[in-house]
Amino acid sequence: MTIDAGFADPAHRTLVSRLTAGKAGPVAIVSLVILMLWYAGAIGMNARMQIDAFQRQGVSWGLPDLVRETLAQERPLLPAPHQILIEMKQTIFDMRVTSKRSLVFHSWVTLSSTLLGFAAGTGLGIVLAIGIVHVRSLDKSLMPWVISSQTIPILAIAPMVVVVLGAIGLKGLVPKAIISTYLCFFPVTIGMVKGLRSPDLLQLDLMRTYNANKFQTLRLLRWPAALPFLFASLKVAIAISLVGAIVGELPTGAQAGLGARLLAGSYYGQTIQIWSALVTAALLASALVALVGVAERYLLRRMGALP
């Protein structure tokens, strides 16, 4: 019962326990620790190269010099967070959005195919799920394939899809969107099948006593019951859709998109560029998932399912 003793001490309660209570405090502290580890890592990993550079130039150096220089390399093994932020600021705010070097431009390229693929995949997934729930032959023949399609690393063949579609003249947005569609439909189908089947026997029996037809049962019972499942799937789907779009950009010859930025950065050893593209992608993913979350809360609250 040492914890209780700690809480009994008023000094502890005001300082430590306030920081460790709830979620925001611990998350902030853990983030801070990660940031510090990152800086330490950056110094440690980049030190060797920096020391070599010092020796080549024949300058004498001390620890402060080393720290300062390791955090300001042009092509560090591990860039420091502030370097990434500066690069992001330059490529996002200080540049015209039409510029080939603007991250806004690249993000938009990726985002547009993400959203297109997401919309198509969601639509396809919902239609498939409704079919699977209502048609026995589809349930038995299609469902196992939908599941096993997930075990096939489709993302790995994404570049081939892009190249092959490019060979027949489909370029730019559509091939990437097709990859995203393929990735999206799976979680949506699975979630919706689960959701459409979620009403218990009692509720289905109730519809039966009203002599409701299949369409009425779908509209009044199965669909609303499936919505929470749908949104859980959509969060997965939009994240994976973004991944699909990024990987789909890898083989396009590094022209546009966050994936192309990654590839170009890796070709030329521009680590800061890689990291800034990566952080942008991460921010984009978080924003998209959060957006779906907002839509979910709005809709579920309107349906009265949330307090």
Partner: peptide, 20 residues
């Protein structure tokens, strides 16, 4: 409380991007 929300967030990120 501190690591789990971060872990949840990371699960949604395009981690394949760290490949290069």
């Amino acid at each position: 409380r501190g690591l789990l929300p971060l872990g949840n967030m990371v699960s949604a990120l395009p981690i394949v991007g760290v490949a290069p």
